[in-house]
């Protein structure tokens, strides 16, 4: 089943990527990133079945980082929303050169 698991991982990852590329809602993009992280986690778990538990350890780390990222990212989104009254990224270009 390893091949199937990896294929599923790739598919989920691609869906996440397409979501990031096509959506403009900051929270949607954020959730797409979470989907991509999950896809990678699936790869880790699938490979750990063959190559030892280290893959699962990495999943733990990924989850931690994802949690931290969610906390900070959502805080940023709230801060932006307070200023701009929107989370549409097309309207947010403070970093424009």
């Amino acid at each position: 089943m390893l091949v199937e698991a990896l294929a599923l991982s790739a598919l989920l990852f691609t869906i996440g990527v397409i979501g990031v590329l096509t959506r403009r809602n900051a929270i949607m993009i954020f959730m797409c990133v979470e989907l991509m992280l999950n896809a990678v986690n699936l790869s880790f778990v699938a490979l750990s079945k063959l190559y030892g538990a280290a893959g699962q350890v990495f999943v733990v780390f990924t989850m931690t980082v994802a949690a931290a990222e969610a906390a900070v990212g959502l805080a940023i989104i709230i801060a932006i929303f307070r200023h701009q009254r929107t989370v549409n990224l097309q309207n947010i270009n403070l970093l424009k050169g």
Binding site: R24, L95, K96, G97
Partner: peptide, 15 residues
């Protein structure tokens, strides 16, 4: 020219 790449649009960066 470099600054023109910096659109400030997250979407562009993602691309």
């Amino acid at each position: 020219m470099g600054s023109q790449l910096q659109t400030g649009q997250v979407g562009t960066y993602a691309w």
